[in-house]
Simulated assay, not measured.
Amino acid sequence: MLEDTPIAFLETLEAAHAHPEEHWRRRAANGSSTSRLFCAVTDDGRWLGTMGGFHATGSPDPHLVGVYVTPSRRGPAHGVADALLDAVVGWARLRSGRLLLEVHEHNLPAIRYYERHGFTFTGRTQPYPLDRTALELEMAVEL
């Protein structure tokens, strides 16, 4: 994920490699009551994509996070991204009437995908943590 689209995440590949395997197992186990990770996996166990939801304590709305689909399975013909987004929306709908996300200003394929699925810009921005000269743009969709 980090090799393919590094601007889509808030971590560097180097930092990700430094995490022990247990870190990744905990994340994949969905052990938190405030978050949910959905994965698309082939019959032989290869991960095709992930999307997650995170609902921070004190925040009225959950966030879409950890979005990635392997390049060979991108696009409407495959349906991987849409199925994952449907799963996150279903989870978020039980928590709120709106789902938020933050997207790097230069990640145009992601922005176009979110717009096709009803997300609109809220006007809120913040500096991208790995490059303070770039922005993350907040988008939201009513559920």
Rank of each mutant, 00 (worst) to 15 (best):
M1N: 07
P129Q: 04
T57R: 15
R36G: 06
E138H: 06
G52T: 03
F121G: 14
G97V: 01
G97D: 15
H55T: 12
A134R: 15
T12C: 14
I111N: 09
R27C: 04
H104C: 10
P62H: 08
E11N: 13
G49V: 05
E105A: 02
A87L: 11
G66C: 07
W91K: 05
L85P: 15
M139Y: 06
L143W: 03
E102N: 06
D43L: 04
W47F: 05
D86R: 11
L2D: 02
P60R: 02
E3A: 14
Q126I: 04
H17R: 15
I111L: 11
H63Q: 12
T34H: 14
V69E: 01
H78A: 13
L130W: 08
D131K: 04
E3W: 11
T57L: 04
N107W: 03
E21N: 03
H117S: 08
H117K: 14
A87W: 08
R124E: 14
F54Y: 09
T70H: 14
T57C: 01
G75C: 06
A81H: 02
E21G: 00
A77C: 13
R26W: 04
E142K: 12
V65W: 03
W24A: 02
V65G: 06
P76K: 11
H17P: 06
L108M: 11
